[in-house]
Design a binder for these strands. Structure first.
Length: 427
DNA sequence: TCTCCGATTAGAC
DNA sequence: CTAACGGTCTAATCGGAGA
């Protein structure tokens, strides 16, 4: 192969915040440093973030909180409800800092960012400086993994996190071929991005246990038996980029708003009250990306963990005569769907709505055979503006909030230190 | 037989 | 209040329906 066609090796960094939600909480609670801390999911159900001390005690990711109660009694694990307003705000600050290091970056999740550092002189120093700056300006600890592909950058980040000797930075590209082989042979295949529990099990039947096994597996067999996703993953492990950096966030194709209830719900008006809140949330997101939806779906769930109770999980979708993003219009449909699904003999634990068939808002194309779409806008724009200014839920549609009893449990939420003056404790 | 569509599955975080 | 197990999102795949 001629060197002219050889693309230069990417120096792609994956920056990942350490124990992100716990780290956010600790910023304002120095007393929680060096003690086991966990952050719980919505409804205070499962553990979604753990401090190193909590990990050491054996608290598993996603573990139901009530299962950990023994550990609490024994070791005093401190639990907090999740506070997404706080995490989103700190995330934005971290991402802002990282974006200064390269014109090409991708915010991959609330606590992760890919940064293309290709061509950066003194890569090693810059990586440490980046980490140091995020710590200094936000107080959030991060680790940096560098590789020639996204998959290897993620793997490198894992190594940086796991080995204290790396000081929070690990560059796969700096390894010799022999060192790469040795490292990949030591890493279990489930550490690879895109290889989850099910796949790990199936790969084991093919004697693929380590990352190196996957990297060197017979490609046509892999493709035929496991599909195109794994083939791409294998290529990425072989240092051939297959997953592009997504510099611009694509608009959502589907918007879901759903929640488990704090208590079981049996009454129709309570379900409708919850659903009207979900409609308000989903529609606000829809309008924020200047889109409209053509299909509306609603669903109900009984508690699937209560084997002693009868189960019922209906779901109904309706294609709209014309797409809309008007909360009131959408709620009228959801209301009707709920009426049709509701059966009084069940106890409901969760409900939600899905907006799909999403398209950008365009000027209405006249069609003699269709009803004209009503003028969209002013009321919803005003509602969004007021809620933005005074906080979500400041202005609601009249069906919202008449009934309670469905709201999630959130018994241990921290104050919104960074986004709401009224919640900052007075010293 | 081909294509399209909805439902299901798997994964990430 | 004394039981209790998240929420969103994407892409691939599969089977059936309809052309």
């Amino acid at each position: 192969m001629s060197s002219a066609t050889q693309a230069p090796v990417q120096q792609l960094a994956l920056v990942d915040c350490n124990n992100f939600y716990v780290s956010c909480e600790r910023l304002f609670r120095p007393d929680l440093r060096n003690v086991p801390v966990v952050v719980l999911s919505n409804n205070d159900g499962c553990v979604v973030s753990r401090s190193n001390e909590a990990k050491a005690l054996g608290v598993r990711m996603g573990q139901p909180w009530f299962e950990c109660k023994a550990l609490v009694a024994e070791h005093g694990v401190f639990a907090l409800s999740s506070n997404y307003a706080l995490y989103a705000d700190l995330s934005n600050r971290v991402m802002q800092i990282l974006s200064e290091y390269s014109p090409r970056s991708e915010v991959y999740s609330i606590d992760e960012c890919f940064v293309d550092l290709t061509g950066t002189p003194n890569l090693r120093e810059v990586s440490y400086a980046m980490r140091q700056r995020v710590m200094q300006w936000t107080g959030i600890p991060v680790c940096v993994g560098i590789g020639p592909t996204k998959t290897l950058a993620k793997l490198a980040n894992h190594v940086a996190k796991k080995h204290p000797r790396s000081q929070g930075v690990f560059n796969f590209n700096a390894l010799t071929e022999a060192q790469k082989d040795k490292l990949l042979t030591q890493l279990p295949v489930e550490e690879v991005w895109g290889v989850g529990r099910k796949l790990t099990k199936r790969l084991a039947e093919y004697n693929i246990h380590t990352v190196q096994d996957l990297k060197t597996a017979h490609t046509p067999t892999l493709r035929a038996d496991f599909g195109v996703v794994i083939e791409k993953t294998q290529r990425e492990l072989q240092e051939i980029p297959c997953v592009d950096l997504q510099e611009i966030t694509p608009e959502k194709q589907q918007i879901i708003s759903s929640r488990s209830f704090g208590n079981m719900v049996t009454e129709l008006p309570v379900l409708k009250d919850a659903l009207s809140t979900f409609v308000a949330n989903a529609c606000a997101k829809l309008r924020a990306q200047n889109s409209q939806a053509a299909v509306i779906q609603a669903f109900l769930h009984t508690n699937r963990f209560r084997k002693d109770l009868p189960q019922y999980s209906p779901s109904l979708a309706v294609p709209l005569p014309y797409p809309t993003n008007d909360s009131l219009v959408i709620f009228r449909w959801v209301d009707a769907l709920c009426e049709r699904m509701y059966k009084p003999e069940y106890q409901y634990k969760k409900a939600g709505i899905v907006l799909s068939d999403i398209s950008p808002v365009t000027h209405y194309q006249g069609d003699l055979l269709e009803e004209p779409a009503p003028a969209q806008g002013t009321l919803m724009q005003t509602l969004d503006a007021l809620n933005k200014r005074f906080g979500r839920g400041a202005v609601k549609v009249s069906t919202q909030g008449a009934y309670s009893g469905w709201q999630m449990r959130q018994e241990r939420r921290s104050p919104n230190y960074t986004t709401d003056w009224t919640e900052v404790p007075v010293v």
